[in-house]
Design a protein around this nucleic acid. Structure first.
Length: 293
DNA sequence: TAGTCGTGGTC
DNA sequence: TGACCAAGACT
């Protein structure tokens, strides 16, 4: 299985991979491993097409870790704009500061060192080590887990994320690091464009000949996915609205009562503000709110 | 381990 | 139209 998996995916990837900014030679030459790290931060739980314009603007403003480390949290949150999960912006900023202070301004190559940076977990650490430095590690994201669930385990949906996923992927990697990097990228790419969550396009899949799920007739597996909580009226929506108002204030303070004045549940709005302050996403003084300095 | 954390596009 | 989904990490 490992050899045939790689043998099917590598030529497919060379022929069909999307032309994404962080895969272009000029991008890697200009921004180096830092460019890969920034792209992976933005791609956490955020679709490719929403990331691209933000990524280019971000790296134009802050092309390296030292530049970002010198910025203020308020500037960082403003530039992050509506990408979502704004804590990622603070973590990326913190990673830049740690790279400046603990790594001489150079993005570390070792997985353990990358894991020690804020906002970097199993996926992002290995993605940087593999795609920026060419080292051989298993890179496992949600697409990878779905492809392995189907092609290898013969089930429609992956089990909840577990450390075993890394071992599963490692089994599929060729010995050569460059080939292994392609297989990592190709597995993600296949999951993103062909072996998708809702409507897999098996007719165009390079793995159809060896797919365990296809071999057993595409059975539906028990749906153990967690239902996503409703966004409308949620605390998350309230937090998002508060931060949006502060971003639009363009660096100025706002009297607290002027932020989301028409929110249906004032107590929920106040809880949102408190939780944003607790998370370091907001500051309050003398009844006024502002982005953290 | 399970809950929480934004936002917008898709079907 | 509303539920699902998205290159996850942290607690």
């Amino acid at each position: 299985m490992p050899d045939s998996f790689a043998a099917a995916l590598i030529p497919w990837y060379r022929a069909h991979a999307r032309d994404l900014p962080w895969r272009r030679g000029e991008y890697l030459e200009r921004y180096g491993p830092w460019g890969v790290l920034v792209s992976e931060f933005m791609l956490q739980q955020t679709p490719v097409n929403r990331v691209i314009p933000h990524l280019e603007a971000w790296l134009t403003r802050w092309p390296d870790p030292l530049a970002l480390a010198a910025a203020s949290p308020a500037e960082v949150l403003q530039q992050w704009a509506n990408l979502g999960y704004p804590r990622r912006a603070l973590w990326l900023h913190g990673a830049a500061i740690a790279i400046r202070d603990e790594h001489g301004g150079r993005t570390p190559r070792e997985v353990a060192a990358l894991l020690a940076l804020p906002g970097i977990g199993d996926y992002t650490a290995r993605a940087v080590a593999v795609f920026a430095f060419g080292d051989r590690h298993p890179v496992v994201d949600t697409n990878t887990r779905r492809v392995i669930a189907r092609a290898v385990h013969g089930v429609a949906q992956p089990a909840p994320p577990a450390r075993r996923d890394l071992d599963d992927m490692l089994t599929l990697l060729p010995d050569d690091p460059a080939d292994a990097a392609i297989v990592n990228a190709a597995t993600m790419e296949l999951g993103a464009t062909v072996c998708t969550a809702r409507t897999p396009d098996c007719a165009r899949c390079p793995l159809s000949g060896l797919c365990a799920w296809r071999a057993v007739g595409f059975p539906e597996s028990e749906d153990r996915r967690r239902r996503q909580a409703k966004y409308e009226g949620s605390d998350r929506q309230a937090r998002g609205g508060v931060l949006r108002a502060l971003r639009h204030a363009d660096g100025h303070r706002l009297p607290a009562e002027t932020v989301l004045p028409d929110w249906p549940d004032p107590a929920q709005r106040d809880r949102a503000i408190d939780s944003l302050i607790a998370d370091g996403l907001l500051e309050a003084s003398q009844g006024e709110l502002m982005l953290p300095r």
